[in-house]
């Protein structure tokens, strides 16, 4: 990789037709192989920003470059793996076929697809559910399918919108570690949205704290915890200091995180 940013957000603003200003003057550079979390109160535009990075909606002003290309080009080059806030599975496809969908679109052969799906099913611990349909899965299991699907083709940039929101604490912590392992092994860059301050600190190289509508970046917290992170990391004093720092940044200016149950 060279030194140009993996994601370069240049003065991005977004006004929706309804007159809502969701984002205003966002500037952010994500370095290659970096793990950046976006955290902020509900409705501050995190999902919107992720959609703009992924070229799924157009910004009203500004531009996004991914690996030196316009976001549009990056999308056509299959640079993105997206996990939405909701699982967004295809009801008529089984778990295995949902995971294999991007691979089908990339014209992988049947054998190769099956092997890859097997690996991924193991990774997200859904063995035995390969032939189930989405309605037969719990919310957390559905979300794991959607994560496996996003990882399936080793995209250069993973955009994840609260992917672990529907998981229990234990699974969530395990998936956190898995995600870091995948991140380390794959060399991908990750932009990650979460409502959990400890999760943001644990996972990220940097945490971008966003302010309430219109969404802006209120501050960036460098997470200088050593890599690779492990379950131990959560017990280090520095971890708690950073959690406090992010919390204070959020609170500054009367900004507070929504209570967890409202975070959906």
């Amino acid at each position: 990789m060279n030194d140009r940013p993996a994601v370069h957000i240049k003065g991005v603003s977004k006004q929706f037709k309804a007159g809502v200003t969701a984002l205003s003057g966002i500037d952010l550079e994500v370095r290659p192989r970096e793990f950046v979390s976006l955290i902020g109160p509900s409705g501050c535009g995190k999902s919107t920003l992720l959609r703009i990075i992924g070229d799924l909606i157009e910004p009203s002003a500004g531009a996004v470059e991914v690996n030196g290309k316009p976001a549009h080009r990056a999308r056509l080059d299959h640079d993105y793996g997206i996990v939405f806030q909701e699982a967004v599975l295809y009801d008529w496809r089984t778990v295995a076929k949902n995971i294999a969908l991007p691979l089908e679109l990339l014209r992988w052969g049947r054998e190769k697809r099956a092997r890859r799906v097997e690996e991924l099913v193991e990774l997200v611990e859904l063995q035995g559910f390969e032939d189930h349909h989405p309605w037969q899965l719990s919310g957390g299991m559905q979300q794991r399918v959607s994560i496996a699907r996003a990882l399936s083709f080793d995209p250069a940039l993973l955009l994840m919108d609260e992917p672990f929101g529907a998981l229990d604490e234990m699974t969530r912590e395990r998936m956190n570690l898995e995600l870091l392992r995948i991140w380390d092994a794959s060399g991908s860059t990750i932009v990650f949205v979460t409502h959990s301050i400890p999760e943001a600190v644990f996972l990220s190289s940097r945490v971008a704290v966003m302010s309430r509508r219109p969404g802006r970046i209120a501050g960036i917290v460098e997470v200088d915890l050593p890599q690779p992170r492990s379950a131990r990391t959560r017990e280090e004093p520095r971890f708690f200091e950073l959690v406090t720092e992010v919390r204070e940044r959020l609170a500054a200016g009367g900004l507070e995180l929504e209570p967890a149950e409202e975070a959906s």
């Binding site: 799924l56 999308r75 056509l76 299959h78 939405f84 909701e86 967004v88 295809y90 679109l105 990339l106």
Partner: peptide
């Protein structure tokens, strides 16, 4: 159709 399921297809450049 759920617009997000179309968005997802677009993210794969389908």
């Amino acid at each position: 159709v759920d617009p997000r399921s179309i968005e997802l297809m677009h993210s794969y450049a389908a």
